[in-house]
Amino acid sequence: MRNIPSDDVDHLDRVVLPIGTDYAAGQVLDWHEHRRAQFLYGATGVMVVETADGTWTVPPERAVLIPAATPHRVRMLGVSTRSLYVEPGAVPWWPARCTVVDVPPLLRELLLAAVEFPSDYDLSGREGAVATLLLHEIAARSPLPFHVAVPASAGLATLCREYLAAPDAAVTNADWAARSALSERAFTRRFRAETGESPAVWRSRARLLAAVPLLRTATVTEVSGRLGYASPAAFTAAFTRAFGTPPSRFARTTAARPSPAQRVTVHF
């Protein structure tokens, strides 16, 4: 099925509903939720998925598992998706929070095949076998660390979301503590209690996540400078340490000429 709203087929008696959807560049799917669990695979482009408790950046050819009935917002950056909407009772192993995972060749080919199925695909033949195999393949996936937690308290959450929208290497713990009317020590203790990380470590990861969509239209050198790293080598080392793969894996070797809006803003 292609470009069909999931709500239009949610009633069908199929454990797995495959849907392929193409999105306009920069399109935002504002806050919504699905009754079913969702496996959201970006065949092209970058997706940024936001929930109340975190932000997940999904690089090209990766996917995010979204739990059933989880309010979320998605920004699509040049994305064509292959989604699976899965009955919650069929996947008791589904994660309780969004999780970014790899998509190896077999799973990718199964997804590409499944979105060509009719809405009432045959459960007893090849199509039903593919749907069953898809669930086995998804269950075998391991999580990837392309996310940051967002604190529960409103004040800290505002600081974090503002930083995600405009990462700035010059921001310090003292700056955030002053805005929160706390001592630096008290602020750091509270931030760590809510996120499991120090503010400095959190900001470092947020800057690295911001690099993923930027790398779609810029070189590693350009992105490292834009995000305040001393050199491309320092940026590459930090990115590889955080995500287990170098930024060159996601970068254009020769940067395209972005539009004026793309030169200035990192959207989350």
Rank of each mutant, 00 (worst) to 15 (best):
R108N: 05
L123F: 01
A157E: 04
D102Q: 10
H147V: 11
V100S: 09
V130R: 02
E162Y: 09
E127S: 12
H136V: 07
S119P: 01
L107W: 10
A166T: 14
S153W: 02
L134G: 02
V103T: 04
A131T: 05
V148L: 10
S124I: 05
A139N: 03
L106R: 14
L133V: 03
Y163V: 07
S119D: 11
H147R: 14
D120R: 14
L164V: 04
A131P: 02
A131W: 03
F146W: 11
D122M: 06
D122V: 01
V103H: 11
P143L: 10
V100N: 08
A113D: 09
P167I: 08
A166K: 15
Y163C: 10
P105N: 09
H147D: 11
T99I: 00
L111C: 05
A129R: 13
D122G: 02
R108P: 00
A152G: 10
P151Y: 13
H136E: 15
A165Q: 10
A149V: 12
I138F: 06
A131V: 03
E109N: 14
A114S: 14
T158K: 11
A131H: 03
P104K: 03
P167Y: 13
P145M: 09
T132I: 02
A140T: 02
G128R: 04
S142P: 00
P145G: 08
G128A: 05
R141P: 00
F146G: 04
V100K: 08
D120H: 13
D102T: 15
A139K: 14
E116G: 09
E137T: 02
P151A: 13
P151I: 07
P145V: 10
R161V: 09
T158G: 08
G125M: 07
S142N: 12
L144A: 13
S153C: 06
P105T: 11
R141L: 12
P104G: 11
H147E: 15
L112Y: 01
A140R: 15
A129Y: 03
A139G: 08
E109K: 09
L164T: 04
A166W: 15
F117M: 06
F146R: 04
L156E: 13
R161I: 00
G125L: 09
V130G: 02
P167G: 07
A131K: 04
A129I: 02
L123M: 01
E162Q: 12
P151F: 08
C160A: 15
C160V: 15
L112F: 05
A114W: 04
A149N: 08
L164H: 15
L135P: 00
H147I: 01
L159M: 14
R161E: 10
Y121G: 03
A149W: 05
R108H: 13
L112T: 09
D102G: 12
L134S: 06
L107S: 07
A152P: 00
P105G: 05
R161M: 10
V101C: 12
E116M: 09
A165D: 15
L159H: 14
